[in-house]
């Protein structure tokens, strides 16, 4: 079932295998408040990658001795459902899920105003319902929207996108073949209003110039996503007038 030979990622006409231009992102869809019990929830989709995130808290942390005296702790779990991938994924946490839970927690910690809630914990749970490249960033964005949906104070929303190198071309928002066969995969997430990088990883091989070009391209994508995120939050209140 696995291809032995690397397929062509950029076609004759300069387009990618899914018809996109190198600087084009997949369609994005955001839904808020999708779960009743959670304090905040969101479904974030980019192309066929779809993630559900839920937030509970801030609430008192037990056992007390694990709580931080001056701010909230975050408990963050990134998890893939067994039916989210082509081959069934064993539901037990994999090493990858453990690493991504940590990376996502650290990104969220850069934006949640944890000092407002000493001795509490904020639970953030993400379930990947469909995996088609970019799951860690879609999960991070779903979590960020769920936190906003819960009304938990944030420095900024988090928007992110993976840039990479496919057949030597720097591309925006990798698809699955590019993720698997490309020469580099660099997920980037930012607090766009503050110009701060919250998540940055590289898997692959790039020159310093390619890295900078990738970062610049990522910022373009991030700004587009950021506006969609704001629209999603505002949409509910399109006309708000008090009497």
């Amino acid at each position: 079932m696995m291809q032995v030979q690397k397929p062509r990622l950029i076609l004759e006409n300069g387009l990618r295998t899914d018809g996109r231009r190198p600087d084009e992102m997949r369609p994005i869809k955001i839904e808020l408040g999708v779960l009743k019990n959670a304090d905040g929830s969101a479904i974030f989709e980019m192309g066929n990658t779809k993630v559900l995130a839920a937030v509970y808290g801030p609430k008192e942390m037990h056992p007390r001795h694990l709580a931080l005296p001056d701010r909230a702790s975050l408990r963050v779990r990134y998890h893939m459902t067994p039916f989210s991938t082509d081959e069934r994924k064993n539901p037990a946490p994999s090493r990858r899920e453990i690493e991504l839970s940590k990376v996502i927690r650290e990104a969220l910690e850069s934006t949640v105003l944890t000092e407002l809630f000493p001795r509490t914990v904020i639970d953030v749970f993400m379930e990947v319902l469909q995996a088609d490249a970019g799951t860690r960033l879609v999960s991070l964005m779903a979590a960020s929207m769920a936190l906003a949906d819960a009304g938990i104070p944030l420095r900024d929303l988090i928007a992110g996108v993976a840039v990479g190198k496919a057949d030597g071309i720097i591309v925006l928002d990798l698809n699955e073949p590019e993720d698997m066969w490309g020469e580099a995969d660099m997920p980037v997430a930012m607090l766009p209003s503050l110009g701060q990088v919250a998540l940055l990883q590289l898997n692959g091989d790039m020159t310093p110039e390619e890295f900078r070009k990738g970062l610049e391209l990522a910022q373009k994508g991030i700004n587009i996503i950021y506006n969609l995120q704001k629209d999603a939050l505002r949409k509910k209140y399109a006309e708000y007038k008090e009497e």
């Binding site: 019990n37 779990r77 037990a92 749970f125």
Partner: peptide
């Protein structure tokens, strides 16, 4: 296989 996700209720804990 059934999983009671921690998303589903405030006191559901993550784990096997």
């Amino acid at each position: 296989n059934v999983e009671l996700l921690p998303l589903a209720y405030e006191t559901f804990e993550p784990g096997p």
